[in-house]
Computed example of a mutant assay.
Amino acid sequence: MHGSSSRIVGGDLASVMTREGDKVSLICQTDGKPDPTLTWTKENRNLSNPKQGRKHTHLLTLVREEDAGEYRCRAENPHGSANKTFRLVVQSTPNHMGTMVPLLVGLFLLKVFFCFLLILATFWFSNRQKKAPVMREDTTRG
């Protein structure tokens, strides 16, 4: 029986950049006779049971920051083995609430300041009217 060593098509290293919430497919295409058995690991932790075949996809749905790291597919048959490493970089999505909070606090403080000015002006005008001299007509002359 004649065979060939396992190999992974497309090199042994790939960098993948994505954003939080995206879907990512890590594709490992293998070659060899007999068909290699492929396993996926993330930082030396098994992610799946070994599978036989030529093309395997590790799918990550709704990617989170903690999904970032090194993923490795390993193709192996009786004639040899090969590895491919995927470096997954996850960019965090901007937190719009982080920019909204200072804006909302500022608007609230501005509203409080204007209410204070309105109360102060009302108080000042009401006191001014109380102190103003009242002009009366003298009805005793005549």
Results as ranks from 00 to 15, higher is better:
Trp40Cys: 00
Val63His: 01
Thr93Cys: 12
Leu107Trp: 11
Ser6Thr: 09
Gly106Arg: 08
Lys33Ser: 15
Pro36Ala: 03
Leu60Ser: 04
Gly11Ile: 03
Asn49Lys: 15
Thr61Leu: 03
Thr139Val: 13
Gly32His: 08
Leu120Met: 07
Gly106His: 00
Gly11Arg: 10
Gln29Gly: 08
Glu66Phe: 12
Gly80Phe: 01
Gly10Asp: 01
Leu120Arg: 05
Lys111Gly: 15
Glu66Ser: 15
Ala132Trp: 02
Met17Leu: 11
Met97Pro: 04
Arg72Ile: 14
Ile27Cys: 01
Ala121Asp: 07
Gln52His: 02
Asn77Thr: 01
Thr30Ala: 10
Ile27Trp: 01
Cys28Asn: 07
Met100Arg: 15
Arg74Met: 07
Thr85Cys: 05
Gly10Thr: 04
Ala68Asn: 07
Asn46Leu: 13
Gln29Trp: 00
Ser25Gln: 10
Gly69Gln: 10
Gly32Met: 02
Ser15Val: 14
Ser48Gly: 09
Gly106Pro: 00
Leu59Gly: 09
Thr122Val: 13
Ser81Arg: 05
Pro78Gly: 04
His2Gln: 14
Trp40Pro: 04
Val101Ala: 09
Thr57His: 00
Val24Asn: 06
Gly53Leu: 00
Lys51Asn: 03
Cys115Phe: 12
Ile27Ala: 12
Ser126Ile: 05
Lys131Gly: 04
Ser5Pro: 03
Asn46Phe: 10
Val89Trp: 07
Asp12Phe: 08
Cys73Gly: 05
Phe113Ile: 00
Val105Phe: 03
Asp12Ser: 14
Tyr71Ser: 02
Lys23Ser: 15
Val16Arg: 01
Ser92Leu: 14
Arg19Asp: 12
Thr30Arg: 02
Thr39Phe: 04
His79Asn: 13
His56Asp: 14
Trp124Glu: 10
Ala68Ser: 09
Gly142Asp: 11
His56Leu: 14
Val24Ser: 01
Cys73Ser: 04
Leu120Gln: 06
Phe86Ser: 05
Gly106Ser: 15
Leu38Glu: 04
Thr61Asn: 07
Gln52Trp: 02
